[in-house]
Amino acid sequence: MTTGPDLKAISATPGGAAATTRSHTVAKLIDTTTCIGCKACEVACQEWNNQQFTIGNFAGTYQTLPDLTHSFWNLIKFNESEQDGQPVWLMAKYQCMHCVDPGCLRACPAPGAIVQNANGIVDFNQDQCIGCGYCMTGCPFDVPKLNPITKKVHKCTLCTDRVSVGLEPACIKACPTNCLSFGTREDLLRKAETRVDALKEDGRPQAGIYNPEGVGGTHVIYVLAQADQPEKYGLPKDPRIPWTVALWKGPLKWAGNALLLGGILGAFLHYLRYGPKDSGKPADGID
């Protein structure tokens, strides 16, 4: 891994990551208002990552599969709802959000199985993965999926293999409406703001950016026409790393270690101070 890109964080590794040299981070912008649901991004993702596709059952929706799978990392969610008596049909591409504070990485017990590159990409190293599935609990977006046969977790890599050689991710490349764009996070946030302003002027007062603060922001950013109701798009309203995961990987770890080490130390000190409990009769063990 020392030969890979600069790292910002490494799972289960005391001391953290090497120093970073990059100042720019990358991001993906998904403008849901111009998505036509063509699924070119799904196909491009499958093609580039050489994934097998297993056809599921038709469930009365345009959506390809009910959820992401270990071999299907990019899913357009089609959501139907109603507003003011009018049907609303929303579509939003769903994949790993590449959180600034990734819950998967925090939950992972295997050193180096999850890394966060200096450019912001959160990537899984299946070689180091032990298949515990803690990342699935740490992730507030339910993105990582376990391959039941190999017992390794998989998810969108933000095409780190393409990005590291200066190409844009496969999904971006395939998008015919330019609803997807790739660039530095800074630029894309600015672009998103411009787009939101335009939408508001266009009579979409609820338009806004989805870049949830609960996970420190994300490297996958959405423009939503109804940003006040992200759940309508199948996006969690206020995603956060579960507090039990944060407590477990934070204060509990230290309290537990202190308690166990204290117990061992206490036993030693007790022995030195009070010695063994003898049978109270001089004959026991002494001539």
Binding site: M136, T137, P242, T244, V245, L247, W248, L252, G256
Partner: peptide, 11 residues
């Protein structure tokens, strides 16, 4: 259940 268990199991 998973969120509860990751806390209770180590405790």
């Amino acid at each position: 259940l998973r969120e509860i268990s990751v806390l209770i199991h180590p405790i």
